[in-house]
Design a binder for these strands. Sequence first.
DNA 1: AGTATGACCTGATGGC
DNA 2: TGCCATCAGGTCATAC
Length: 260
Amino acid sequence: MPELPEVETIVRALAVRLQGATVGSATYWPSRVFRGVTPPALDGAFVKEVRRHGKYVLIELNRGYLAIHLGMTGKLLFDVPDSKYTRAKWLFDGVLLSLEDIRQFGRVIWGEEIPEGLRLLGPDPLEISLQEFVNRAWSHRTGIKPLLLTQTFVRGLGNIYVDELLFRARVNPTRSSAGLSQKQLTHMWEEMRRLLEEAIRHGGSSISDYVDTSGRKGSFQREHRVYGRGGEPCLVCGSPIQKIFLAQRGTHFCPVCQNL
DNA sequence: AGTATGACCTGATGGC
DNA sequence: TGCCATCAGGTCATAC
């Protein structure tokens, strides 16, 4: 579910309420999200910083790092009662934070250092330089869509924002990354930043599950130009938006605006 | 190194 | 109303 803009929205809200707070208690329900390794109790630990690392929420404590990936249906919610899908909850100076995850594709990782799974990810799309973006794109032989979804290439893009980005940059999703021109990649890099920043300003996209820490939906789904619009007219040229499958992911694009 | 496939989970939706 | 298939903001592991 949540991609970079949604996780960024969550992290900003967490930072306000958790920075400097002390962990009073932690409760973990048996669940796949821990992948067999439940974090320690953490009583008395305090929060140094909350930040985003790709699609991970990273909570830095004085004793180590709690990394939370929300998978497809994960939510971090303040002050809600336990539900059937509550997988963990923490009390930070009287503030209750719960992790709910229906499908359990999310994960919670504990590490005394930043977990390796996070360190191995590629650069952040909002921080990567144009030159590095171009060089990295040209160094792979794969399709541009699957490449943008690969978190070791850049960290944080998912299916919605890749489709939207390729539409805005007028790049066909079936193109190979190495075959793109400097001009096309420059356009993509610029649109990537613009798109993500705009989506963050809208509080992310809510299709079915995503809500922020207060349970509120984002509004960027109203700005989607291709994602979820298969068969509907292109907002630029009017031809029907196509939906195909690439790398097993639904892929939406305009065959005219994004011609080969 | 690439790509293709299935697995992991649960719920919503649409066709019959 | 029920049953079945299909689909969903994401990784992962395995096999060619």
